[in-house]
Design a protein around this nucleic acid. Structure first.
Length: 571
RNA sequence: CGGGACGUAGCGCAGCUUGGUAGCGCGCAGCGUUCGGGACGCUGAGGUCGUGGGUUCAAGUCCCACCGUCCCGACCA
């Protein structure tokens, strides 16, 4: 491609620094352009990167024995009603009425459609199956942000494993896990695979692939000693035990006027009400049901854990009005003691604790001498606590660190939820009808592109790994008005192209600094610089984008050398 | 949905407080000089000032409504 004819609009004036680095570089370098919030045009340079990511994913899926599909993006409401998700998906689903008055949705995921196709399978002899597609997904995100990292319209590779037995699902899961590692490696990333919440999809195992970056939206917990790693939505830590009295009188109330917070209560009664001797009582509304959530005073609730253990689709803190109706007191004086008509979920760090202080459900009153097991009717004990940095690893006691990551992939086991809903059952070897067991596996294409940029750039711009670079080599002519330079440049461009190298030919009549800066901004891995001075000595210059090395090489050896450098750098 | 900010030339912005001829930088076009790390001179093109309404002799500027974009939070496969 001749640079003069390529659509590479570069923006010299830098947009806001508040943006993710990938957004700034992709926009400036002419890879993507925003149309509206959450919707981006992919420009020719970006499309070339996208195609390479697409190909890597496709190749690795095909190695797994995956079969590629292409499913509709418009779905009739009926199939979503059938799976029970028409209501569940809420405002995140784009919906519209067609000319017949029928309700439709833009596909945000494709479990339903694939499960319908799976109804065409009848016998256990047809398994296992891995089905996938690479297609646009639509999600009406309340807040699209960080450029191409969170869009309302984006491309996802979604695959689904279909098996008859649990062990088949387990191996499909492992195969996907390995394939994902290879895919990301080939894209030049080293994401960390972390234990995650499967969210409202249900499922027993869930692993996310996270690329460390401040532009990310997830928080990841890792141990400095062992390989424990988990999303904070799932992570736990070891909690030091607290010594409590063996014998304890019955609870009694005491006045705590004007005290509304854990901190204030601890300050007023330092001997008996240190935060780890208090019970924090949170009131949540889970799918419309008021529920008490009890935490140790110095611990915070991890809401996703509450959603996961309760199976609720929606959780929100109760309003002050709802709290007064439910408990007869205002926040600051709440407790679970004496509550019998509401469900109570308690964090396991409170299990067996005695001698605690909690609100009395009377404004400005608290109880002391609370024995959780004896005095509070806890319905269920669960791990609900949010892990904090510096706490001890649950495996080996190492120090836990928390960092931000971009979720580029997510794999999890679905089970039979969708196959049962859509009637995808088959006959097993005993002639019994059994539902197909499914797994679900996703990778975001544009998000991967952004994550590569986030993890491979410098102050001059993007550093594309060769495997995903829009072009592998840029031939830059210095003095593009010099006939010798033009002739040598054109020959070089032709020779490299014929050798199968993807070449961008910067034939613009520009000053060298402009051409070098542009090439570095858009991140082409290798640059051959041809100028009159070098030609006088029979040499050209080979520049490597990563590390910015420069080599003088003889003109005669240049093509062969560049071809071999490119070939060994392809993954 | 709550809080905040912004919307003026392709891009980045000033002008608004105190209403009175729409500006700057980059980019773009032409000519010339330069040119192995983002050159310079001269000339020039390019604007429904987000949209609608209101106040006024007069609105980019003041008032109201709406739309859009970004950030924080809520939310989120």
């Amino acid at each position: 491609m001749h640079w003069s004819h390529a659509f590479i609009p570069t923006l010299r004036d830098d947009p806001s620094d508040a943006e993710a680095i990938s957004h700034r570089l992709l926009v400036r370098g002419g890879f993507v352009r925003q149309l509206s919030a959450g919707h981006y045009s992919v420009l020719p340079l970006g499309r070339r990167v996208y195609d390479k990511i697409f190909r890597i994913i496709k190749e690795e899926m095909d190695v797994l024995g995956g079969q590629q599909f292409h499913l509709p993006a418009i779905h009739p409401a009926e199939i979503w009603r059938k799976s029970g998700r028409w209501e569940v998906m809420g405002d995140e689903m784009f919906r519209f009425i067609d000319r017949k008055g029928a309700e439709n949705a833009l596909g945000m995921t494709h479990e339903e459609v694939f499960a319908i196709l799976a109804t065409e399978l009848f016998s256990y002899r047809q398994f296992p199956q891995i089905w996938y597609q690479i297609q646009t997904k639509f999600r009406d995100e309340p807040r699209p942000k960080s450029g191409v990292l969170r869009m309302r319209e984006f491309t996802m590779k979604d695959s689904y494993s279909l098996d008859v037995e649990r062990s088949g699902l387990d191996s499909a899961f492992v195969l996907h896990h390995q394939a994902y590692v290879r895919m990301f490696q080939r894209m030049g990333m080293q994401p960390v695979d972390v234990e995650a919440s499967s969210g409202s999809m249900g499922g027993s195992e869930s692993v996310e692939f996270m690329v460390r970056s401040d532009a990310g939206e997830d928080w990841i917990v890792t141990c400095d000693k062992c390989d424990y790693r988990a999303n904070v939505e799932r992570a736990t830590s070891a909690v030091a035990t607290v010594e409590d009295p063996a014998e304890l009188p019955l609870p009694e109330t005491f006045a705590t006027p004007e005290i509304r917070t854990i901190k204030a209560l601890a300050a007023a009664f330092p001997d008996e009400a240190s935060p780890d001797h208090q019970i924090k009582t949170l009131v949540y509304v889970l799918d419309g049901n008021v529920t008490l959530v009890l935490m140790r005073g110095d611990h915070d609730l991890q809401e996703q854990k509450l959603l996961d253990v309760s199976g609720a689709l929606n959780a929100r803190p109760a309003t002050p009005e709802e709290i007064v109706v439910a408990l007869g007191a205002s926040p600051g004086s709440l407790g679970g003691l004496g509550v019998v008509d509401l469900e109570i979920v308690a964090d396991s760090a409170l299990k067996g604790r005695r001698g605690l202080v909690t609100g009395a459900n009377i404004d400005d009153m608290h109880y002391r001498n609370v024995d959780v097991d004896r005095d509070i009717k806890v319905g269920r004990w669960e791990d609900l606590r949010a892990v904090k940095a510096g706490e001890a690893c649950p495996i080996d006691g190492g120090v836990l660190d928390i960092w931000k990551g971009i979720e580029v992939g997510h794999i999890f086991k679905l089970g039979t939820r969708y196959s049962e809903a859509m009637g995808a059952t088959i006959q097993d070897e005993n002639g019994q009808a059994v539902p197909i067991i499914m797994g679900s596996y996703g990778i975001g294409l544009e998000r991967s592109m952004a994550a590569i940029v986030e993890s491979s750039n410098d102050e001059r711009g993007i550093i594309w790994p060769v495997s995903v670079a829009p072009y592998e080599v840029v031939v830059s002519t210095v003095r593009a008005d010099d006939e010798r330079v033009i002739a040598t440049g054109a020959n070089m461009y032709r020779a490299l192209s014929e050798a199968g190298v993807e070449v961008l030919y910067d034939d613009r009549v520009e000053r060298p600094g402009v051409k070098f800066a542009d090439a570095e901004l858009i991140g082409i891995p290798f640059r051959i610089t041809i100028g009159p001075k070098g030609l006088d000595a029979g040499t050209v210059e080979l520049n490597v984008r990563r590390g910015l090395e420069t080599h003088e090489i003889s003109l005669g050896d240049a093509v062969e050398m560049v071809v071999s450098r490119v070939e060994e750098a392809r993954l």
